[in-house]
Design a protein around this nucleic acid. Sequence first.
DNA 1: CGGCAGCGATACCGGGCGGGTATCGATCCG
DNA 2: CGGATCGATACCCGCCCGGTATCGCTGCCG
Lengths: 278, 278
Amino acid sequence: METRELRYFVAVAEELHFGRAARRLGIAQPPLSRAIRQLERRVGATLLDRNSRGVTLTEAGSVLLREGLAALDAVDAAERRTRRAATGRPGLVLVTKAGASAELLAKLLDAYAAEPDAVSVDVQLCGIGEQARLLRDGRADVALLHRPFDSTAGFDVEELTTEGQVVVLPAGHPLTTRPHVRTAEVAALDLPTPRWPQPDGTYPDGAGPRVRDNTQLLQLIALGRAWAILPESSRSLLGTDHATVPVLDAPSVTTVIAWPPHSRSRAVADLVRTAARL
Amino acid sequence: METRELRYFVAVAEELHFGRAARRLGIAQPPLSRAIRQLERRVGATLLDRNSRGVTLTEAGSVLLREGLAALDAVDAAERRTRRAATGRPGLVLVTKAGASAELLAKLLDAYAAEPDAVSVDVQLCGIGEQARLLRDGRADVALLHRPFDSTAGFDVEELTTEGQVVVLPAGHPLTTRPHVRTAEVAALDLPTPRWPQPDGTYPDGAGPRVRDNTQLLQLIALGRAWAILPESSRSLLGTDHATVPVLDAPSVTTVIAWPPHSRSRAVADLVRTAARL
DNA sequence: CGGCAGCGATACCGGGCGGGTATCGATCCG
DNA sequence: CGGATCGATACCCGCCCGGTATCGCTGCCG
């Protein structure tokens, strides 16, 4: 199976529409139809049901979509990492969620920079749930992930810290006088839960305000329009507009450092070792 | 990058010889040379050093070899799993080392077969170190691995059992009267350590007898020509020709059940849950 | 030192396939 | 019933993959 075929299939499987998929791929629709048919013949399976008015994935098709995306990421990673290796410039790309573990990250970077063979580290901040993708397709070498929010599936990981969570509220909110609260009390507040975008960029249905990043979230909280339960360490991001209260029964958050399992990079190994010693 | 190009490059990188690689690929040498050149131009990096008399990998080339193999496995896995899904026949392929964890495996299969939605399980036995490959390229759905011998890199795992190791000796050997021994004592025996094949099929240099599987190993031990340190559970394979003594300071062996991280299969999840409950 | 063998690169050719346009056939809708 | 939508089909063109023949370099050996 060629990557071209895979890319074509993924486009159709995601768009569920030959015309749109062809436009997205920058080709005409007929060659795309033919390519998918050929792929189906070669695999020996129907991948798409072309019902009147619409295309749907078969069982086999959804398997190929999932596995194909992973395979395409692996191919992209191979190309990117090769290109990076070719420049001869060493250097790591570390990716983490914007606004998370800022203090830990600073300590890690300082400690690593003091190592004898340290290379430069580019820190890349990204949105929710994008880290795994960047790590898989070779745009990043190492990531800071936060369990249980981020999936660490398919990576090697080393646990760094575990911390409790706090509820973030506007300064002066009645609850902020309490030494600690429970999730049920927070949920009982007359405030909607903010909605975060899903991986495909759309928002789930519901009542809450739509937020795209931490700044938006914090501003909404300051305005008394939302609340959030965040790891303790995010307190360092807050000013006088916000107050926090520990949440006793919220799951604790573990920060882990993750890297691709077959990484052979000396620099990644050094960075991980440094992190584990913090 | 197309998988054809990757396959070509991998062939040359492994053979380090254009002619042989072309023969292995079933094409003539000139198109192969051209394809590699094109790949190098497109990646923008020299992948191979063509010295007079021989080809060697550059830094970038060895990165592409490693990452490319993983990517090709992922593509193969996508195709295989799609084909499997298309047959409609459910069924799992479980792979494990021949001769390892026989009792555990039997219990697992029995317990799983009693589950309400159990599907058929093909057990595939393979040689040392092949399990990871089979799991990566889609020929297997789930594997029993043994840490620290097998690498679990890149898979999701669940620990099943941990056991100590014993030294296997011919029946009547002086050491077998002891309640336990230490590795140093075993190493001090005037017996060579058997040599196992490396992943590429060749044997490391050295003095010991070459073995390819457990049967060969056990026969050599019975003949007094070798010894082996194996997990306790392998005692169930031994007859009256062998005797075992616990080794106090040998690392303990953990049997884990492993599956591809993005597996969405109901059957795999059921099997893993059953295994975890044993 | 010259001839030869081994090996990768180059030159050149033919066929297959990927991509394009035009069009068809089916289905849904007003 | 006519039009719109959407995937499939028909057909053509140009590129690229693969083949054969050959070159150029290098190291070896007589």
